[in-house]
Design a protein around this nucleic acid. Structure first.
Length: 314
DNA sequence: AAGACGAAAGTGGTTGA
DNA sequence: TCAACAACTTTCGTCTT
């Protein structure tokens, strides 16, 4: 696979020797396409064939998609009859009864086969879940640390046997949602649901469940966490950002944010800040990036203006 | 014509009995 | 399980720039 072509391979490629120093230690460097002598450094051949795949794969998903071969797959029975199965009848291949000693041995073998099969299944499910998390995270352009956090949460959920009865996709999405909040780069349930294969409702259910069972107590998302993303989506300056955050801190002190949807409050404060800084955006634009309606932006922004004693000249 | 404003009715989720 | 409830959305008409 891709790992094979990284770095240099040493050995005796083709049983050749260096014709300068006579050393048999030749090294292949597939990245440069050169065959060199490890002894004197002479480039013996500069157009060697790369035996690795001609494409590059950046993650597990791509590797799976681009691979031309692989295990035949079925969604229901993972081995599709390809692996050996020990018969449940205590007969040998001629139909004769087994000796008691032999029977005991077969019994133990069956037991182990059962165990290996389930651990195989959980491994496969885990691999699927992790690639699913990575796929969603890629779509949302989430940083590495969030993916790691999500993967960790999922592994914990598996350890605690929380997956049973729930879909892998649902729990994967829930883990990602929780990880986003944990890492203070919140995404709304809607955004997660968009890149997931399951409904927002199911993700929410799974999230609440694993949060409760894994004793994760996340504070409600602060509107402040949304500011950088919304502001950059609207191509607003840092000045507007800090103004909006300042407004929100004020608002939080006066309890204007509790009970309100954080995205709506964030949108309103950005709207106000954009007006105050002379970089006005329309209510519609702000509402769109925050995924709320103009009406909500208006309601929140009126509240903020009233309670904070702001006089926004429009 | 576009944006802002607000009223009114509808929706989905939470809460408490 | 059900009803009450607040937040939010949808829709639509009006006003302002």
């Amino acid at each position: 696979m891709a790992e094979d072509k990284q770095g240099k391979q040493q050995g005796k490629p083709g049983g050749r020797k260096c014709h300068v120093c006579g050393s048999p230690r030749l090294a292949r460097d597939y990245d440069r396409g050169e065959l060199t002598c490890a002894g004197c450094g002479l480039v013996i051949h500069d157009k060697i064939m790369d035996m690795g795949p001609e494409w590059r794969a950046f993650d597990q998903e791509q590797r799976e998609r681009r691979g031309r071969t692989g295990a035949p797959m079925t969604l229901t029975i993972h081995d599709k009859g390809l692996s050996t199965m020990i018969d449940w009848r205590d007969r040998d291949s001629h139909g004769k009864d087994l000796t008691p000693k032999r029977r005991a041995q077969i019994y133990r073998l069956r037991k182990w086969q059962r165990r290996i099969r389930v651990s195989d299944a959980t491994e496969r499910n885990l691999a699927f879940a992790l690639s699913e998390i990575d796929r969603m995270a890629s779509h949302l352009a989430l940083p590495r640390n969030v993916r790691e956090a999500a993967a960790l949460l999922y592994r914990k959920a598996v350890e605690e046997r929380l997956i049973r009865g729930r879909s892998i996709e649902g729990v994967s999405a829930a883990a990602l949602y929780a990880a986003c909040r944990e890492c203070k780069v919140p995404r709304t349930l809607d955004e997660i649901a968009d890149v997931s294969r399951v409904s927002k409702k199911e993700i929410g259910r799974s999230y609440r469940f694993i949060a409760r069972e894994l004793l994760i107590h996340l504070r409600p998302t602060s509107p402040i966490d949304y500011i950088p993303r919304f502001a950059s989506d609207l191509e607003l300056s840092g000045e507007v950002q800090s103004k909006a955050i300042e407004l929100l801190k004020d608002a939080q002190k006066k309890g204007l944010t509790s009970g309100r949807g954080p995205t709506g409050v964030a949108a309103a404060s950005i709207y106000i800040a954009s007006v105050l800084c002379g970089e006005r955006r329309t209510q519609r634009d702000v509402a769109d990036v925050a995924r709320v309606t103009e009406v909500t932006v208006r309601n929140r922004y009126k509240e903020l203006c009233d309670k904070l004693g702001l006089d926004v000249e429009l």
